[in-house]
Write a protein that binds this DNA or RNA. Sequence first.
DNA 1: AATCAATCACCCAATTTGGGTGATTAAAGG
DNA 2: CCTTTAATCACCCAAATTGGGTGATTGATT
Lengths: 214, 214
Amino acid sequence: MNLQIFDGKLIRICIVEDDHVIRNGFKEILQEVKHFQVINTYSNCEDFFMNLEFDKPGVVLMDIELPGMNGIDGILLIKKKYPRIQIIVVTVYENDKLVFDALCAGAGGYLTKNLPTDRLKDAIFEIIHGGAPMSTCIARMVVASFQRNQNSPLSKREMEVLSLLSKGKSYSSIADELYVDKETIRTHIKNIYFKLEVHSKADALELAKKERWI
Amino acid sequence: MNLQIFDGKLIRICIVEDDHVIRNGFKEILQEVKHFQVINTYSNCEDFFMNLEFDKPGVVLMDIELPGMNGIDGILLIKKKYPRIQIIVVTVYENDKLVFDALCAGAGGYLTKNLPTDRLKDAIFEIIHGGAPMSTCIARMVVASFQRNQNSPLSKREMEVLSLLSKGKSYSSIADELYVDKETIRTHIKNIYFKLEVHSKADALELAKKERWI
DNA sequence: AATCAATCACCCAATTTGGGTGATTAAAGG
DNA sequence: CCTTTAATCACCCAAATTGGGTGATTGATT
């Protein structure tokens, strides 16, 4: 492990976790690592934010279900004030919405709690070195979220049109972009509505996104 | 490693890579693993597809830059025909667009070519066990793609309106959804356009997406 | 021969959109 | 306390957009 990336300084770590057994367990695991310095541990976000300016953490381990402010809002608040603090979520939840909410809020990593002790240490090194530590199934969820269902009932051209519609473009600008007449675009959209059995742009886009066609 | 997950069968692997040194290197590394069976290696997609029905691979290692059909289109075609085949991209490119194009096309993993030999073996086990093997910086790119810039000049309400606009909704339906008058939505949108210095829905959405506000 | 994809035309009316110019109320900040 | 901002609503106006109808032609695929 190359020390220079730390600027010769220790990695300052805070833990926010309401279960004190887990909290102290994590603390003991991390304290043993010579490049790490566990500055403070907290059982809720409120206490954590009270000391944030003094703690100056480089990495925060954050639980999601917490008394008072939840972890997602905690992440949002940290990132709003100090965008460079790295946050790793450590939680039991593998629920789609929570995972993506956490990542959207600014989490740089996401681990589920059934982890071997070394995984926690590795994750902190990983995130400091520009990685994004994730549990196996979280990584798959994240990658799967990019995947598109290619079996839509729409033709290639219709997919193009729908995709441009989803960008908020008007029929005329879509026509310009595809070098065809506005009437052609109107026909495509009529056909799209007929195939999808919808009667408006919003309904077509909602269905297309739900079915992961776009 | 639990063997039962393989149903007692070997993992059938194909390699598509135009550099014959790398291609044979990968083959030799993987052939040594007892659960693996390297069925065939190809220097281009066309040859690969010719034998796809006979090879019946479970995992394909796919390069991106290839003579003839490129790797992205190759992935699209594989996934269209056999959605359950797992594909790991192995390439020198860390370019944003290529990474996301590959994942959108259906890649289940993405490795850059400067990898230790064990990483390749691990990646195949990982993807078979429901993971998504990625190089460090790729994982970060992927996670970062979820992150939103919270410092938009728009107010909370304006962000709500813009976000509903991005779903293709009309002023009236946005008004209904937010339980306010259509005129209020119109005022919000006028203010959004003024703040963003744009004069249309498409321009506002383009800017908001570029700046990662939505 | 039949189907589908992609293109274009013309009719119609309601809705939407973008812009202007106001106003009121409540909350937040200096 | 004063100012600014956010959020709400009103009314005027004209151009553009949208959704629906009913056609047609061409070329490819089956």
